[in-house]
Each structure stands twice: as structure tokens, then as C-alpha cells.
């Protein structure tokens, strides 16, 4: 198990470093910076720093920059994890290497964990960039360096990973990556409370928002970092991430187990 995780990590890392050695790092950093600079301009130069009075109530008393920096950072982590875990198998299919993986007795879970570990290293770079630029632009991130915050980040990654397993099955089933991932990512950034509180959205959209682990994870992250709340005070959000993770993992795994024979037939048959 550990061996497959490690070798998948190494294989992906070598592949990505040889494909895009330095431009890759630059693109990650630039993406992180733009995630923050855009809302910063809108807030300061378009909205003139004015917010509705109920924003403070929904955002646990945070200022807008801190609110948006934390949301964007977690969104970056979600998108990276979903994208890399979700399209891991379909990329193997397109590169013509999936059959060697399916032919082997190696654990599929270990393969996915290998992909997760490699991509998390890259995603954390982008995550760190968003937070660093945010801090420079005035976000108050003092409580970020705490065990509580680290635990929330780990929990969020778990949620995104489990959702990525389901996404992987959807991509393999539809043989489509662009429509699937782009639709999902745009929807998530609109409804999960990244740049504005979900309470501003219509009731039925708020309900849809609850099916994404990003919604409770980002709420939890802000409560811990901005509100200095304990994890116990946020047990409902934690439970929601855990339950959603369990559901996505179960759905994705069962779907994949059912789909693998058909997948093999479509490749080999």
C-alpha cells in the first residue's frame, strides 16, 4: 500500500517537473495572486470599502479582505485536489497507461492517495501564496498558525479528496473532463461562500451549497481563524464535512468498482 502511494507520488512528481519545470511554479503563484488581487480592487475601488450592515453578522465580524482571503485559499485547495484526483484515471486513459494499472493487482485506493499526496504539495504552494498575498493586502491571519487551523485544513483536504473520487468516476463515465470540472468549479465558487456569505443567496441555492464539503469547511476555517473558536464549538460543520466525505467516498468507490469491468472492456474489448 505505502509503496504504491510513494511510487505514484514519485511518478507524478517526475512527470510534472519534466513537463513544466519552472513555468508551472510561476503559473501556480500567479493564479494565487490574482485570486486575491481582483476582489481587493473590487472591494476598495468599486465598493469603496462599503458593505451591507448584515455582512459582519454573517462573517463572524471579519473584515472583507480577511473573509475573502480565507475563502479563496480554501477554494484553491478544493479546486486543485478535485482537479488532480478527479482526472487522475482519465489522464492515464488518455495517455494510454491506464491498462497497465488495471492489469496490476495494485490497490486503487493507494494509487489515488499517491495522486493526492503529490498534488497536495503543489496545491499548498498556491494556498500559501493566496494567504501571503492576502496578508500583504491587509488580511488578519494571525490565528492561522495554530493546530486548530491545521486540523481544519486536513479535514478540508479529506472532504475534497473524497469528492474527487466521485468526480473521477463521473469523468470516466462521461469521458469528459472540461465540462465536468469547469461546471463544478464555477458552481462551487458561486454557491459555497467563497467571496460572499451563502446567506445572501436564495434559499434553494443555499440548500444546494450544503452538498459540497467546501461550504462547511470554509465556514469552519473562518470561525477558527477569524472568530478564534474551538473545534468543539463547530462540531456541526465538522460532522457535515465527515458525513459528506463518507457519502462521496462510498458513492465514488462503489461506482468505480462497478465501472472498472466496463472500463476494461471499453479499453481492451
Amino acid at each position: 500500500m505505502w509503496q504504491v502511494i510513494l511510487s505514484t507520488y514519485q511518478k507524478n512528481r517526475i512527470g510534472i517537473m519534466r513537463a513544466v519545470p519552472w513555468s508551472f511554479m510561476v503559473s501556480r503563484v500567479v493564479t494565487g495572486v490574482t485570486q486575491i488581487v481582483f476582489p481587493y480592487f473590487i472591494y476598495h475601488y468599486f465598493m469603496q470599502g462599503n458593505l451591507q450592515s448584515d455582512f459582519g453578522k454573517y462573517a463572524a465580524g471579519a473584515d472583507y479582505m480577511t473573509y475573502i482571503v480565507l475563502g479563496s485559499a480554501l477554494n484553491v485547495l478544493a479546486v486543485s485536489t478535485l482537479m488532480n484526483v478527479g482526472r487522475a484515471l482519465i489522464s492515464e486513459l488518455r495517455e494510454g497507461t491506464l491498462e497497465t494499472l488495471l492489469l496490476s493487482p495494485a490497490s486503487r485506493s493507494a494509487y489515488f492517495l499517491g495522486c493526492l499526496s503529490e498534488q497536495t504539495m503543489r496545491a499548498l504552494l498556491e494556498f500559501g501564496t493566496v494567504l501571503a498575498v492576502g496578508a500583504l493586502l491587509g488580511a488578519d491571519l494571525g490565528f492561522l498558525l495554530s493546530l486548530r487551523a491545521a486540523a481544519v485544513i486536513m479535514l478540508a483536504i479529506l472532504g475534497f479528496f473524497c469528492m474527487g473520487i466521485t468526480l473521477s468516476s463521473i469523468m470516466l463515465y462521461t469521458r469528459n473532463t472540461y465540462l465536468t470540472q469547469n461546471t463544478l468549479f464555477v458552481t462551487m465558487s458561486l454557491v459555497c461562500g467563497i467571496t460572499y456569505p451563502v446567506q445572501y443567496l436564495p434559499g434553494w441555492v443555499q440548500k444546494i451549497a450544503q452538498i459540497f464539503p467546501l461550504t462547511p469547511a470554509v465556514e469552519l476555517f473562518r470561525n477558527v481563524v477569524i472568530g478564534h473558536q474551538s473545534l468543539m464549538e463547530n462540531y456541526f460543520s465538522i460532522l457535515q464535512v465527515v458525513i459528506l466525505s463518507g457519502i462521496y467516498l462510498a458513492v465514488g468507490s462503489v461506482w468505480y468498482v462497478k465501472m472498472e469491468p466496463r472500463l476494461m472492456e471499453s479499453i481492451f474489448g
Binding site: 504504491v4 511510487s7 505514484t8 497507461t97 497497465t100 493487482p105
Partner: peptide, 21 residues
């Protein structure tokens, strides 16, 4: 097909070997 083109022969074989424990 069935080979990782960006990896060397050694790296390919190391990866495939790990899939078999």
C-alpha cells in the same frame, strides 16, 4: 502505449515494479 514517456526506462520499471509489490 503503456509507458510513461516523460519517465526514463528505469523510472518506468521502478513504478511498474511497485505496482506488483
Amino acid at each position: 502505449r503503456n509507458l510513461y514517456w516523460r519517465l526514463t526506462a528505469k523510472e518506468n520499471l521502478r513504478y511498474f515494479g511497485s505496482l506488483y509489490g
